[in-house]
Amino acid sequence: MKINQDTVLRGKKVALVPYTAAHVPRYHEWMQSEELQRLTASEPLSLEQEYEMQRSWREDADKCTFIVLDAARWPGQAEEESCMVGDVNLFLTNAEDPTLGEVEIMIAEPCYRGRGFGKEATLLLMAYGVRSLGITKFEAKIGQENEASICMFKKLHFKEVAVNSFFQEVTLKLDVSDQERRWLLEQTNHVEEKSYTELKRPVGVLET
């Protein structure tokens, strides 16, 4: 989505940055994992297909994608690609209801799971969706075996509304009432929104 192509959302644990071509090799490496393929219901792609997917996610008006970085290490302490933790997505797939967003979160690096990175990344994305995209309803579809993710979304006030036994998938939803909106914005009042271009500029480089 072009609206977020220069947006960084920086929280306490995570920084969300636009998904660029520079992230594709690491992302492609992640998606060779059979565990991640199973948890995300994804098929493995070739590297060239992954680049095509990245271009699609960047250009399509119905996909808002961020790469999740370790905020303690980026920017400044390590190369950006080595700070990658996972990704988070908001899909606007209902043409009849542009206020409905489907949320997906993947913490690909095992050492970052269970430490609050997925929760904060999801909260940052949801708050961005409410503030900048006009989202008033969220939906998440999660594999039944992914109990950790189901539990996390329930902690974010999502309610289980359906179980698809054929696809072995649970659907959870959250309607953003005034009360939920206040709660969501309170949970993310520490977040800084910055320019990706500015943060990536090398220290000491001055514009002429």
Rank of each mutant, 00 (worst) to 15 (best):
M152E: 06
M152I: 04
M152R: 10
F153T: 03
F153R: 05
F153L: 04
F153G: 03
F153Q: 01
K154D: 01
K154C: 06
K154N: 08
K154T: 01
K155L: 07
K155M: 08
K155V: 04
L156M: 11
L156A: 05
H157E: 07
H157P: 03
F158C: 07
F158L: 00
F158E: 02
K159R: 13
K159S: 10
K159H: 08
K159L: 14
E160H: 13
E160P: 09
E160K: 15
E160T: 15
A162Q: 14
A162S: 12
A162M: 10
A162G: 09
A162T: 12
A162N: 14
A162Y: 15
V163D: 12
V163T: 12
V163M: 13
V163Q: 13
V163G: 01
V163R: 09
N164E: 15
N164H: 13
S165V: 10
S165T: 15
F166R: 15
F166Q: 15
F167K: 08
F167I: 10
F167D: 05
Q168T: 10
Q168V: 10
Q168A: 12
E169R: 06
E169T: 15
V170E: 07
V170M: 07
V170T: 09
T171H: 08
T171P: 05
T171A: 14
T171D: 14
K173Q: 13
K173M: 11
K173H: 09
K173Y: 09
K173F: 10
L174F: 08
L174P: 08
L174S: 09
L174N: 04
D175Q: 05
D175T: 05
D175G: 07
V176M: 01
V176P: 00
V176N: 00
S177P: 01
S177W: 01
S177G: 06
S177I: 00
S177D: 00
S177E: 01
D178M: 12
Q179N: 12
Q179C: 10
Q179K: 04
Q179T: 02
Q179I: 02
E180W: 06
E180I: 06
E180M: 07
E180L: 09
R181Y: 01
R181E: 05
R181A: 02
R182W: 00
R182T: 11
W183N: 03
L184F: 03
L184N: 02
L184P: 07
L184G: 03
L184A: 04
